[in-house]
């Protein structure tokens, strides 16, 4: 279980990385960030690039910075960097919670925020919270910088809208709006495993009714998605167990082509999406009530 041969480059600057990328056939280059998903594929020879382009020497891609109403996380910041960031903790407890749910400390020490986004694993937490929060993903390529809405970034299984020759440089995570209750929950066969199904819920309560409800289901199909039908059911309504259950049912109905594998059938996943939708809404409501008190 050893990788096929490849050439290796670890440029110190983004410009050099982009130059290397432009000089090579993009299909023959794999970009290495934390490597926690790519290295197993290399070891199994399921990925076999001519050139491995290691971004981890590029200092400018690291770090967590405050913007006006968002946090900018460098694509090469590790999950551990996020975990240790009081800025993220203060501005966005949902993003923090999703961080510590990922894998195990040994994985978070090395795995990067950008890597998880670009890997676009349908069962991963980061794409789901990025979609829920409306994060922006910033890419640099031969044509300069491009800002992509999270919902437009994730296409399907392991596929994003990054163009060949582009490198993800930054993730801008909007601050959790004041008064927002939130929840992220998942079911996985074991603690730390990729989710069979997960859900993210956000909502605010104004005058006793739900405002700006957001529901994202992940792990259940080809990518993390919001569920507008269910969100529409909630908006302007008084929260109740019955309402959340009907939102869950709407999610289950609108879930397209659920994944079917050894751990869960499509029907089971559909039902788990219903259950987790209701459970996360319920927890989000409790948090919203808590913040409004």
């Amino acid at each position: 279980m050893k990788p096929a041969p490849f050439e290796y480059a670890a440029p110190p600057t983004l410009d050099e990385a982009l130059a290397i990328l432009s000089e090579n056939d993009p299909d023959e280059v794999k970009i290495l960030a934390g490597g926690q998903s790519l290295m197993p594929l290399l070891n199994m020879r399921l990925a076999r690039p001519e050139l491995l382009l290691d971004l981890t020497r590029i200092d400018e891609l690291g770090g967590v910075r405050a913007l006006d109403s968002a946090v900018s996380i460098g694509a090469l910041a590790t999950k551990r960097d996020v975990e240790d960031s009081s800025l993220v903790r203060d501005r966005n407890p949902l993003f923090m919670e999703s961080t510590v749910m990922i894998g195990h400390p040994q994985i978070r020490n090395r795995g990067t925020v950008g890597g998880s986004m670009v890997q676009a694993d349908p069962a991963a937490e980061y794409p789901a919270v990025a979609v829920a929060l409306g994060a922006e993903l910033v890419a640099r390529g031969p044509g300069g910088e491009r800002v992509i809405e999270a919902d437009d970034f994730f296409i399907t299984y392991l596929t994003t809208s990054l163009e060949p020759g582009e490198i993800l440089t930054e993730v801008r995570v909007p601050d959790l709006p004041a008064g927002t209750g939130w929840s992220i929950q998942e079911v996985a066969r074991r603690h730390g495993d990729f989710a069979i199904v997960g859900a993210v819920a956000m909502l605010r309560l104004e005058s006793g009714v739900c405002v700006d409800p957001r529901i994202v289901i992940f792990g259940a199909s080809d990518r993390a998605r919001r569920h507008p039908e269910a969100e529409a059911l909630l908006a302007g309504e008084r929260p109740s167990a019955a309402l959340f259950e009907s939102a869950g049912q709407a999610v289950a109905q609108s879930l397209e082509d659920p994944t079917d594998d050894v751990h869960a059938s499509a029907d089971y996943r559909r039902d788990l999406a219903r259950v987790l939708c209701a459970r996360t809404l319920s927890e989000a409501m409790e948090r919203a009530e808590g913040s409004g008190a």
Binding site: G35, Q36, M39, P40, N43, D54, R80, Q106, I107, R110
Partner: peptide
């Protein structure tokens, strides 16, 4: 990268030695 048997410390942080290249 699942079993954790090869964990070592790199710059003080525990990591999977099977998911890192020596060049890194």
């Amino acid at each position: 990268g699942v079993c954790g048997i090869c964990n070592v410390l790199v710059d003080g942080r525990s990591v999977r030695a099977c998911l890192l290249l020596a060049v890194q």
